Simulated assay, not measured.
Amino acid sequence: MSELCLTLLCPPEVEEKLIDLLLLMPNARVFSSTARSAHGMSQEYMDEKEQVLGWTRTTEVRALITADEQTALLETLRQQFSGVGIRYWTMPVVDSGVIL
């Protein structure tokens, strides 16, 4: 079963709702979140100050999922966060585990 790292960039005002959703979903077993400055985001989701500065505050969430789970998780995110402007991408995970 191949693992993927799903990266999501979301506006800070929906961070809590996104994290709550991921906590309830069995397909996002391990994830992290952190505040970021994002560049190159669509200007329609930026306020005037952010447009001048060229960056926007965002929350980055990274979740380990399987390739089989990706479609269902993205569909749920599309339903729950339509119109919010969440950016995402996936990358293959070469190795992962727990060091005890």
Rank of each mutant, 00 (worst) to 15 (best):
M1H: 05
S2G: 01
E3I: 01
C5N: 15
C5R: 15
L6E: 04
L6W: 09
L9M: 12
C10I: 13
K17H: 05
L18G: 03
L18T: 10
I19G: 10
I19A: 08
D20T: 09
L21T: 07
L22T: 02
L22S: 02
L22K: 04
L24V: 04
L24P: 00
P26C: 04
N27C: 15
A28G: 05
V30E: 10
F31Q: 05
F31A: 01
S32M: 12
S33M: 09
S33W: 15
A35N: 10
A35I: 10
A35S: 14
R36V: 15
A38M: 12
A38G: 14
A38I: 12
H39G: 00
H39A: 08
H39T: 11
G40D: 05
G40F: 02
M41K: 09
M41Y: 13
Y45Q: 05
Y45I: 09
Y45L: 11
Y45H: 14
M46T: 02
D47L: 03
E48A: 13
K49C: 00
K49D: 06
E50P: 10
E50S: 15
E50C: 10
V52S: 03
L53W: 00
G54Y: 01
G54W: 01
G54R: 03
G54P: 02
W55N: 05
T56H: 01
R57N: 13
R57G: 12
T58E: 12
T58D: 04
T59P: 06
E60L: 11
E60N: 08
E60Y: 06
V61M: 10
V61A: 07
R62V: 05
R62L: 04
I65V: 11
T66K: 04
A67Q: 12
A67G: 12
D68Q: 08
Q70H: 08
A72E: 06
A72V: 02
A72Q: 03
L74Y: 05
T76P: 00
L77R: 11
L77Q: 11
Q79M: 14
Q79Y: 13
Q80D: 11
F81N: 13
G83A: 09
G85S: 03
G85M: 01
G85T: 01
Y88I: 00
Y88G: 00
W89K: 00
W89S: 01
T90D: 08
M91V: 15
M91W: 08
M91H: 14
P92I: 08
V93Q: 03
V93K: 06
V94R: 06
D95T: 10
D95Y: 13
V98I: 07
L100H: 09
L100E: 12
